[in-house]
């Protein structure tokens, strides 16, 4: 799509584009290209010699138990975060969309956690689940549950999932609410007159009409869980205990920054790029198709 009426000029538009293009090239294409290039290189332990190894870094990754563990953790973590955050948000949005007293206040009180940084969300939940100072953590101890997310991998995963999902509910809530409000009232009234009770109305009319929103949010939530939650994991568990909460993005950081294994880290970055591009492409295809709703 483009405009019919435009200004003439060649130098000016290029000039206007320069800032954005410069930033994009220097901080996007250059590093992305470097990542691809480095992913084919390998350095020796002292960083003295670098050799070209083609796809060996990738092949090594797929045979690396730690990497596969991180991939599996990512699957568990992302699907749990997405399921929890989407489910809770849809439920709350459906409630808040009803004509009730105080709907506006409820809405405000449900959207603010969007502003909380993932790492900060982790710290807030740490105050609650910490085994020695946390309200719930101590309560667990008191009733005989052996609760310490610092040594128990499953508990650690539960913690990061809760903190990451908690923060994302608001975002989903806003979109679900907007989606609900864009369903024409008359369609719902037609369903009511056709004899559909609220529960049935939800599953046969509202939910199908929300499915484009839900799909869009699913992709956004997966991307969020893949990347933005680095802060949650770093602040809460540092990938531990024993790699139990190490996700793909966390491993990129560990291998690149702590282990200084640039070749492997770059290869991991490239894999992540492919994943995001695939997710985004799927989403765009889907959006194209749903436009007419």
């Amino acid at each position: 799509m483009r405009k019919k009426v435009i200004f003439r000029g060649v130098a000016l538009p290029y000039l206007l584009l320069v800032p954005q293009l410069a930033v994009t090239i220097v901080f996007f294409f250059w590093p992305a290209g470097m990542a691809v290039w480095q992913s084919t290189l390998r350095q020796d332990a002292f960083g003295l010699r670098t050799e070209f190894v083609a796809f060996e870094n990738f092949l090594d990754l797929f045979g690396d138990a730690l990497y596969l563990n991180a991939a599996w953790n990512t699957v568990i973590f992302s699907s749990s975060v997405a399921a929890l955050a989407l489910g809770a948000a849809l439920f709350l949005a459906v409630q808040a969309d009803k004509q009730i007293r105080g709907a506006g206040l409820y809405k405000t009180l449900l959207i603010w956690p969007y502003a909380v940084a993932p790492a900060l969300a982790a710290v807030l939940w740490l105050f609650i689940f910490h085994p020695s100072i946390g309200l719930v953590g101590r309560a667990f101890g008191a009733i005989g549950i052996d609760w310490d997310y610092r040594v128990n991998g499953g508990q650690a995963m539960t913690m990061v999932v809760i903190a990451a999902a908690w923060k994302q509910v608001s975002y989903n809530f806003i979109f679900f609410l907007a989606g609900l409000q864009s369903i024409p009232t008359s369609v719902l009234e037609a369903a009511a007159i056709d004899g559909a009770r609220p529960f049935r109305r939800f599953w046969t009319v509202i939910f199908p009409l929300l499915s484009p929103t839900a799909f869009f949010l699913l992709v956004v939530n997966l991307v969020y869980a893949f990347f933005d939650t680095f802060g949650v994991i770093h602040a809460l568990t540092r990938g531990g205990p024993g790699n139990a909460t190490e996700t793909l993005i966390y491993k990129v950081y560990v291998d690149g920054v702590q282990n200084l294994n640039f070749g492997s880290s770059a290869a991991q970055s490239v894999i992540l790029m492919v994943i995001v591009i695939a997710l985004t492409a799927v989403q765009f295809r889907f959006i194209e198709r749903r436009v007419h709703y």
């Binding site: 024409p184 008359s186 369609v187 009234e189 037609a190 369903a191 009511a192 007159i193 056709d194 004899g195 559909a196 009770r197 009319v205 199908p208 009409l209 709703y293």
Partner: peptide, 20 residues
């Protein structure tokens, strides 16, 4: 009674067809 229990049918200005 709720609309469902009245055994009536309605035609809306915007038609209100179920788009899906």
């Amino acid at each position: 009674l709720e609309p469902a229990d009245r055994d009536i049918a309605m035609v809306f200005q915007t038609y209100a067809l179920y788009p899906h």
